[in-house]
Nucleic acid binder design. Structure first.
Length: 505
RNA sequence: GGCCGAUUCGUCUAUCGGUUAGGACGUAAGAUUCUCAAUCUUAAAAGAGGGGUUCGAUUCCCCUAUCGGCUACCA
């Protein structure tokens, strides 16, 4: 067998924003393609004209670009196998549908949705297949002239795949091994609808994967049950020799139990399920996104990569490059993974720590300006450096650093009661004198002098330092006190202490 | 209901028949400290149940249970 170049595709349907499970599928396709020196295609499967949502396609492209998942060809990228939007390939599908019709692998059916509905009510287990198709209104049961006349009269019809019963169909899955399903349980799937002259997923998928020379189909487990149908379709077209290899990925599950992760879960459980914020054009509803929630794309990629796959050792913090070199479909797990948002936060924390103070400061600056403060980037980077280790998200920075920009207007009551006793005002006045006499506000130098003073006077270290913090910050939390005062500067520090003395006595 | 798939700490997972069943998140305790975090150390925490196969099963097979997916003129 000549090893043909690896080609994979990510083929979302533009019926809404791409959700996080879809992102993972795209990521695995990307990792696999890169690992094997192959190509990755973006194909838009917009064959459901009813559910089409404007903006969804642009959203998908933007989201994957944000995450660093790059395509080699497809919608928005160009390429030799286009068009890559299925709605623009109608003629192609029609040609292949006719091929199936001509060689008797498919037939035309006139049963209306209402008729099928009625049939299902009458027979609870009704399935349109070899056992029932001869009782229905289709080109197998109707005289040819009647079929022809009906079509010419514009009667709506569908084309159904004629599945021969009683055959074990083997799907060879890279992740799951051999999966065998008997063709008798498959129904005569609709391949094509005259109503919009569009194929259904199954037909379009097979035709496109074949024409685009896709070698590996990596998709979610929800497709496993229809994989035998796809095998049969490849066979019906005579393409079995070049049929792609399948890999069905385990699903991402809800964190709290039942079912696969759905678009609703985000708002219900308080975390995003979409990469980017999404504004629903019809309902006006806004769904939160990872980007807007303050996630770094590399953290999302790393987190997602490890949900259903592992490198085989204990490493967890992995860059895209490392993921690519380590990726192997055989190391994908077979069972669904519950989505653990807490771990996602931890990943982001790790990546925040990896970024320089300056980079984080640049991300923070726009948020700071929203709070009506400006700051020189060098200074902001120093501030960020003090609190970076305690945040997981850039947007936590304001609550951690607000006191650098706004002097406290009130003081945390509980701490005041605990730390600001009667003589504290006097001691704070002493502290002011100490600070005035300091040759420098540099953290270590200031610390040495101030702590020396407290010890020498026999004051209570905890009380004095906390009162100091209370005066400067407003509450008893935060980074090293003398790092704070170094940045704040002598005058501001003293002013804040004076104000606290006035207010607290 | 039918078909398919899956099942190791609360969660994500390692283990390719022989291990004190390992790591990470989270949780708890301790260390550190002017505070709160962060950090470091430690701890608790798992093979769904039942049969086989085998000298030996978490690992292989079967059954049951549970979970998940599919069962559209949606993808």
């Amino acid at each position: 067998m000549t090893a043909s170049k690896v080609r994979v595709r990510f083929a979302p349907s533009p019926t809404g924003p791409l959700h996080i499970g879809g992102v993972r599928t795209a990521l695995y396709n990307y990792l696999f393609a890169r690992k094997n020196g192959g190509e990755m295609i973006l194909r838009i499967e917009d064959t459901d004209s009813q559910r089409f949502v404007p903006g969804a396609e642009a959203y998908i492209i933007e989201a994957l670009e944000w995450l660093g998942i790059k395509f080699d060809e497809g919608v928005g990228y160009g390429g030799q196998y286009g068009p890559y939007r299925q709605s623009e390939r109608k003629d192609i599908y029609r040609r292949y549908v006719d091929m199936l019709l001509d060689n008797g692998k498919a037939y035309i059916a006139f049963d209306t949705p209402a008729e099928l509905e009625a049939k299902r009510n009458e027979m609870p287990n009704f399935q349109y297949d070899a056992s029932t198709r001869m009782q229905m209104r289709n080109s197998l049961t109707l005289p040819p002239e009647e079929v022809k006349a009906a079509i010419e009269a514009g009667t709506q019809y569908v084309v159904r795949f004629k599945i021969e019963p009683g055959e074990d169909v083997v799907v060879n899955d890279i992740i799951r091994g051999e999966v065998v399903i008997n063709s008798s349980i498959l129904d005569d799937k609709v391949l094509y609808k005259s109503a919009d002259n569009l194929p259904t997923y199954h037909l379009a998928n097979i035709v496109d994967d074949h024409l685009m020379e896709v070698t590996h189909v990596i998709r979610g487990e929800e497709w496993l049950p229809s994989a035998p149908l796809h095998v049969l379709l490849y066979r019906a077209f005579g393409w079995e020799e070049t049929m792609p290899q399948f890999a069905h990925l385990p699903l991402l599950l809800k964190p709290d139990g039942k079912g696969k992760l759905s678009k609703r879960d985000g708002d219900r459980l308080g975390f995003p399920v979409f990469p980017l914020e999404w504004h629903d054009p019809k309902t006006g509803e806004i769904s939160s996104g990872y980007r807007e929630a303050g996630y770094l794309p590399e953290a999302v990629v790393n987190f997602l990569a490890l949900l259903g796959w592992n490198p085989g050792d204990d490493r967890e913090i992995l860059s895209m490059e490392e993921l690519i070199s380590l990726f192997d479909l055989h190391r994908c797990s077979k069972s669904g993974a519950k989505f653990d948002y807490e771990k996602g936060k931890w990943f982001n924390h790790q990546y925040i720590q990896q970024r320089s103070d300056r980079e984080i400061a640049e991300m923070y600056l726009p948020l700071l300006r929203e709070k009506h403060h400006d700051c020189e980037i060098e200074r902001l980077a120093r501030i960020v450096g003090l609190v970076k280790s305690r945040i997981s998200f850039v947007n936590e920075l304001w609550e951690q650093t607000a006191f650098f920009f706004e002097a406290p207007t009130e003081y945390e009551e509980k701490s005041v009661r605990k730390r600001w006793d009667e003589g504290m005002g006097a001691r704070m006045n002493e502290l002011i004198e100490i600070l005035r006499s300091l040759p420098t506000m540099e953290s270590h130098a200031a610390e040495e002098v101030v702590l020396g003073w407290i010890t020498q006077k026999g004051y209570h270290m905890g009380n004095v330092m906390n009162a100091f913090r209370l005066a400067v910050v407003g509450y008893c939390k935060g980074p090293h006190m003398f790092d704070i005062t170094e940045i704040l500067g002598r005058e501001e520090t003293i002013q804040r202490i004076q104000k606290a003395i006035e207010r607290l006595g």
